[in-house]
Deep mutational scan, measured.
Amino acid sequence: QTVHVKGVQYHFPNPEEAVKFALKVAKDLGGRVEFHGDEIHVE
């Protein structure tokens, strides 16, 4: 599972961890989380 944050990719073997990370980052940055297939983008 890959999380993209402002052009940087973070790889997580566990999808659940990836989602938790993405939600935390989005909250910290005041952004939103978008799901694109296997990828999660924080915009």
Score class of each variant (00 low, 15 high):
residue 1 Q to V: 15
residue 1 Q to R: 15
residue 1 Q to N: 14
residue 2 T to K: 06
residue 2 T to Y: 08
residue 2 T to C: 03
residue 3 V to S: 00
residue 3 V to P: 00
residue 3 V to W: 00
residue 3 V to H: 00
residue 4 H to D: 04
residue 5 V to R: 02
residue 5 V to L: 09
residue 5 V to M: 06
residue 5 V to N: 03
residue 7 G to W: 04
residue 7 G to A: 05
residue 7 G to E: 05
residue 9 Q to P: 10
residue 9 Q to V: 15
residue 9 Q to A: 14
residue 11 H to S: 09
residue 11 H to N: 09
residue 11 H to T: 10
residue 12 F to V: 01
residue 12 F to N: 00
residue 12 F to M: 03
residue 13 P to M: 13
residue 14 N to A: 05
residue 14 N to Q: 05
residue 14 N to K: 05
residue 14 N to I: 06
residue 15 P to E: 11
residue 15 P to M: 15
residue 15 P to D: 07
residue 16 E to G: 08
residue 16 E to N: 08
residue 16 E to K: 09
residue 17 E to V: 07
residue 17 E to F: 05
residue 17 E to T: 09
residue 18 A to Q: 02
residue 18 A to G: 04
residue 18 A to V: 00
residue 19 V to H: 11
residue 19 V to A: 07
residue 19 V to D: 03
residue 20 K to C: 09
residue 20 K to P: 02
residue 20 K to W: 08
residue 21 F to H: 03
residue 21 F to Y: 08
residue 21 F to N: 02
residue 22 A to R: 00
residue 22 A to T: 00
residue 23 L to W: 12
residue 23 L to Y: 14
residue 24 K to H: 09
residue 24 K to I: 08
residue 25 V to H: 05
residue 25 V to T: 09
residue 25 V to P: 00
residue 25 V to R: 05
residue 26 A to L: 04
residue 26 A to S: 06
residue 28 D to F: 10
residue 29 L to W: 10
residue 29 L to A: 05
residue 30 G to M: 08
residue 30 G to N: 12
residue 30 G to F: 07
residue 31 G to L: 13
residue 33 V to E: 00
residue 33 V to I: 13
residue 33 V to T: 03
residue 33 V to Y: 03
residue 34 E to R: 14
residue 35 F to Y: 12
residue 35 F to M: 09
residue 35 F to V: 08
residue 35 F to E: 03
residue 35 F to A: 04
residue 35 F to H: 06
residue 35 F to L: 08
residue 36 H to P: 03
residue 36 H to Q: 08
residue 36 H to N: 09
residue 36 H to I: 14
residue 37 G to D: 09
residue 38 D to E: 11
residue 39 E to A: 12
residue 40 I to Y: 05
residue 40 I to R: 01
residue 41 H to Y: 14
residue 42 V to R: 00
residue 42 V to H: 01
residue 42 V to K: 01
residue 42 V to G: 01
residue 42 V to N: 01
residue 43 E to N: 13
residue 43 E to T: 15
